[in-house]
Amino acid sequence: MALCFAVVILLVAALFAWFFHRHAKVTLRVASLQGHYHFLFPYEILGTALTRHIAALSAGGLAASLLVFMVIQRRIHCGVERLVNVFRLSVEGDLSTPTEPPGQPELTGLGRKIDAARSRTLSRIRAANDEAKLLLEEPLSEEEFARRWDALKHILQRIVP
């Protein structure tokens, strides 16, 4: 992120140098050819242009940096919004829709971890459901039924311990 800002600053500084140099070169040449030198310092020749160019540099650099910040913030916002929506879907029972968040790589990695956690939870819930169905459908002896009943409870207890 800081690299994006550094590139912007370098670019704006290069533009400043280019335009100020072009302007100053012409102004100094014209001044040297005037013949009557009524100035004591070079600042009297270049001061106005320098102030104007530095103001433009600061304003341009600030605007470009704010734009970069907004873009980064927007990317983070979109990615996090997707993650939040996935958690909301999960609350409603949807544990299989992939997260796939857009934006920053950090959010993509987090999305993969969230998917892994949801997938694991879903597999445990499915295992519990399969066990419940098996207990319902299979003709089991009392001992076997009691053993599997306890196993089912154990599976349920392992979900979000």
Partner: peptide, 21 residues
């Protein structure tokens, strides 16, 4: 940050450009 940068740059140029002819 950009204001301070601009002021510093201006001061640096001012010091250079106020060397008398």
């Amino acid at each position: 940050v950009f204001s301070l940068g601009g002021v510093s740059l201006f001061l640096a140029f001012y010091v250079i450009l106020t060397q008398p002819f």
